[in-house]
Write a protein that binds this DNA or RNA. Structure first.
Length: 325
DNA sequence: AGCCAGGACGGAT
DNA sequence: ATCCGTCCTGGC
């Protein structure tokens, strides 16, 4: 296809991680709905992922377990791109991966603080070395959290597919087709009416507001990293369409704040079950119990509980059911 | 066919 | 500060 950007092999980047490191469940989260931005190949044990380095530099990565390739704990990133990359570009890719997958984080601090609590202890056995993963930019994660608002995951997945199909760019990475995320100006120069045709409903005006904010505000993402928790949250919530729920997704995922745990109606039920054996506890009650048990590591503990649940109950991944008769 | 679930917002209290 | 109606779509 003529409008498909073909990515060609540039070279390899070996990235080491602080042990213990769980390659698979750091780069691939069982609870995340699938998007055409990435694919985890179970046979090759490898993640394919697209990445927009800047406005017109498109990168495609295949991430492999460095351990299998003789390099100890970490990731071997095979870099593909639509143009030549200079050393500064490559170090930007390296920096991004290091942050996105928390390669320098020491998860044993979390294990020491919360690892004696059941059910965390058994989650750690199965997910030992897993980190928070957030490959997305701040703009991208705010788009995703907006699509998660007020609907089911199945609809969020459909909306994401529609948005990428309309505004993302098609890329070919080692014989497979993906999309790379759209930019703020791709949306800002479109229209609310065009967005509504993609079945995003009343979120169209929110997605437009987010895109306009990023198109108009230089350096917002880097600025946010430097702020204290409350201030960062305030700045996020100042964006129209971003409320407490979406702001906290960004704080946990993008800013990697290990204490941030976020309860929507679905997670409320899960944690009510974990804490009390029934589904009746309020969001306030599960929030308080999570803080009491796990304190500064509540976010990380919540991540381990959720990913372990999906790992043990693959039927929760409704999107896999399409294959069954 | 009508009603409900699901966050954010804005207006009312 | 808290409550409530509205936004939109798909599922029941």
């Amino acid at each position: 296809m003529s409008n498909t950007v073909v990515l060609r092999r540039i070279g390899d980047l070996p990235l080491s991680a602080v042990p213990p490191f769980n390659f698979k469940y750091t780069v691939f989260k069982p609870s995340h709905f699938p998007t055409p931005l990435e694919h985890f190949d179970e046979e090759d044990h490898c993640l394919y992922r697209t990445y927009r380095l800047n406005q017109d530099t498109i990168v495609g990565l295949t991430l492999k377990d460095l351990r299998i390739h003789g390099g100890g704990d970490g990731i071997l990133a095979e870099v593909n791109a639509n143009k030549r990359l200079d050393p500064a570009d490559l170090s930007q890719v390296k920096e991004h991966l290091t942050w996105a997958f928390g390669l320098k984080e020491d998860v044993t601090q979390f294990y020491a603080a919360a690892g004696n609590d059941e059910p965390i202890a058994s989650c750690i056995q199965r997910l030992n070395g897993m980190r928070i993963s957030c490959f997305e930019s701040l703009f991208e994660i705010l788009n995703i959290s907006s699509l998660l608002q007020n609907t089911t995951v199945k609809r969020s997945e459909q909306m994401m597919r529609n948005m990428l199909g309309a505004f993302g760019r098609r890329v070919s990475l080692r014989g497979r087709h993906f999309y790379v995320f759209y930019t703020p100006s791709d949306i800002a120069t479109s229209s609310e009416v065009a967005l509504r045709e993609l079945k995003v409903g009343y979120r169209a005006k929110f997605l437009m507001a987010i895109a306009e904010h990023f198109a108009a505000t230089c350096g917002f993402e880097d600025q946010l990293r430097t702020l204290a928790f409350d201030e960062a949250k305030k700045r996020l919530m100042a964006i129209r369409g971003i409320g407490p729920y979406s702001a906290r997704i960004a704080l946990f995922q993008f800013l990697r704040r290990p204490n941030e745990i976020n309860f929507d109606s679905w997670k409320r039920k899960i944690f009510s079950q974990v804490f009390y054996g029934n589904e009746t506890a309020s969001i306030a009650a599960v929030e308080e119990e999570a803080q009491r048990r796990w304190g500064a590591w509540a976010g990380y503990a919540g991540l381990y509980v959720i990913e372990d649940l999906f790992l043990q109950h693959p039927e929760m991944q409704y999107w896999r059911k399409r294959e069954t008769a």
